[in-house]
Design a protein around this nucleic acid. Sequence first.
DNA 1: AAAAATGTTAAATAAATTTTTAACAAACTT
DNA 2: AAGTTTGTTAAAAATTTATTTAACATTTTT
Lengths: 183, 183
Amino acid sequence: MSEYRDPSRAKVEEAKDKVIGAIAETMDLYGVTPAAANLYATMYFKDQMTLDEMREELEMSKPSMSTSVRKLQENAMVKKTYTRGSRKHTYAAEKNFFRSFMVFYCQMWEREVKMNMEAIEEAQSDLQDVLNDDSSSTETLDEARKTYDQLEDSKTYYRWLQDLVENIQSGEIFEFLPKEKHE
Amino acid sequence: MSEYRDPSRAKVEEAKDKVIGAIAETMDLYGVTPAAANLYATMYFKDQMTLDEMREELEMSKPSMSTSVRKLQENAMVKKTYTRGSRKHTYAAEKNFFRSFMVFYCQMWEREVKMNMEAIEEAQSDLQDVLNDDSSSTETLDEARKTYDQLEDSKTYYRWLQDLVENIQSGEIFEFLPKEKHE
DNA sequence: AAAAATGTTAAATAAATTTTTAACAAACTT
DNA sequence: AAGTTTGTTAAAAATTTATTTAACATTTTT
């Protein structure tokens, strides 16, 4: 190989590795496995990769690469690419961090809103029953009222979060917070 | 106890439990342990709690509660409260989800920006050296240039993320995305 | 000062997650 | 059609993370 004739080559790889390390380290805070984090960071500097290339580059098993790629696809951080002539599947990293941000957080927040809003609606309905029930003690009625109001109040947050999701998905947020600051 | 005379009492607790379950379930996606997630969700419906009350309510060990509380304090999801006369420490859940959102994500994003920006700056400096080095092969120069530009481009995202953090922390974001929608 | 209560740290255990090896299924070549 | 290549599923092993038990330090009460 040319590394011996060209010491700069190694320096370029070293530079990439610094960024790969940083990306991977912040990524496993995002709920992906170390394998998936390293894989994404590696792919970030490649045009596209096959499973065998991944296995070779990361020195890990093929099923691990297969699983990691699938997980990354769920978060839209990796896309399958069509490569004519090649029997092997090829994958490319999403290099636009804005898109990754959008998919990842919107997915996460929508799940949170849906789940909690559903629970809140059910709970409030139960509490309403209690409030309409004459046999309830004063103490219980107070508790039911207080809880009902607390839940009602929390809905403001979930509606806001849903709103944030929609603003991000539509791109409207960039009107308020532009990608490039024009000075 | 009064549960036997007042069936509504049980219904109120059941209603709370539905929400506790939902909150806890979405929370462990936020990188907190199940114990911490359950604890926060439980505290959400309490005024304040001591470690012993937590242990009793969740039926878990005291060190587990102690650790969980500390973790939740780091994310500003729980605050220590002063209770005169009580020797036991008391803690209260942050009930304002907007504040929890702010602290949690801003902390996370700032860490991401800092870490990746530092790596990028270092990498770009290395790549600049390569570009200034006459001994580098054409192939290596192209690779260095391409990588440098890719990193330069990614900085747009990190600057935007930092901007988002600042807008959330200052509350400016609520001018664009109001908490309450006035119709 | 001794005993008791409270909270934390450290070591050990338990549980869950991640990764690998091995077996399998599907698609393509010859 | 038999044999390869490629990718996935399933079971096992390894690693990591979470929780508990036990020991300790600190403060308070008697």
